[in-house]
Amino acid sequence: MAEVNRTRGTIKFLVWTVISGAIIAYFWMQYYNGTLLKQYYYKAKTSGWAVHANNFKDASKDKPAILQIGKFDKIEGLQAVPVKKGDLLPTNTNGIIDEKTVKEGKRVKLDGNTLIVMVPSTIKDSKGFKYRDTFMHKGIETDPWGGAWAVAFILILGFTLGTMAEGFTDMIGMKISKIKHYEGVH
């Protein structure tokens, strides 16, 4: 087996580091410009009110959160946007309070142009490590193309990082030979 070519290893490492860096930078750009979140919180799976559940994380029966209903493009603070099944979700949505829950009136009540939320966004069970979301992630549909993009991204990132690591071991002169599986008694 030939010795490790360190110059070639260095070039390989540098090239794949740049490619990995570019992919990671693209990923973060997608995250910061909201594309990643849009792919996740894509469409309404059910009719109801789109909300940003983190805004009422401490709501309770004694201290309910009052959400203003309106046709907002972006949910900011205590706001709720009415949506029908299949509608694209407004920016900053992270859950839907469905019509059934509002009709029941136990956890959420409709009062004129406001929604009165009487439960927090997450409930922690007393036993073990169980966290249950109340409305966060509920009633949303992800973008199927976003799913394909996410899987492709992860596989490509794995490939570039793996090849970069291969270049790194070559660069430092670490000889990794093929294993001789069938030598000796077995």
């Binding site: 596989l155 990132l157 794995g158 793996g162 090849t163 690591a165 093929k178």
Partner: peptide, 20 residues
């Protein structure tokens, strides 16, 4: 599951080099 898919690519590349 998503991280397993990516991690397996990384490990597969190294195992290919090892002839595994």
């Amino acid at each position: 599951v998503m991280h397993i898919a990516g991690k397996s690519v990384v490990a597969t590349i190294r195992h290919r080099q090892l002839g595994n």
